[in-house]
Amino acid sequence: MTLIVPVLIVFLFTYASFRHIDPFEVFVEGASDAIPMLKKLLPNMAAILAGITLFSGSGALASLTHLFATPAKAIGIPSETVHLLLMRPLSGSGSLAILSDILNRYGTDSYIGLCASVSVGSTETILYTIPLYCGTFGIKRTRYAFAAAIISGIVGVISGIFFIRLFLF
């Protein structure tokens, strides 16, 4: 598993030398193209992370957790994981911290612990990546991108719970 990428890189350099490409020069040329991109990325990141850190640190999630606890339970999501599920689209490190808290509180291999683990693994930080990707390239109207990402995230969480019941409980 850990060998896949190094082997691919060996293949890349061997292939490049057959095609008479100077890997050093071409690497530097490619990395130089990354600099204007990094320059565009930073202001977008600053705006997005300022908003996300403010929102997740403000206690807004705690209020939303109360709001979503009952409907979540109705569709089979343990209410103990709702706080985690609300943090997940916002922040990767934030949701791993909450996951760690849940695992210590309810046990790593308990039903709640397993549901929390699978939910984090099968979802993404969409409220960070979509604005970052779109903001960097001037996409202002995202149409149904958020809706599709949120719906597939919910499907991922529910099917994760289904597979836990199927395989582990």
Binding site: S117, V118, S122, V155, G160, F163
Partner: peptide
């Protein structure tokens, strides 16, 4: 233990992303 259920649920999520 969570690797298989995580993988399968992310496959289901991707399929639903495509359909949606």
């Amino acid at each position: 233990s969570i690797v298989l259920p995580t993988f399968l649920s992310s496959v289901v999520a991707s399929i639903s992303a495509i359909l949606v």
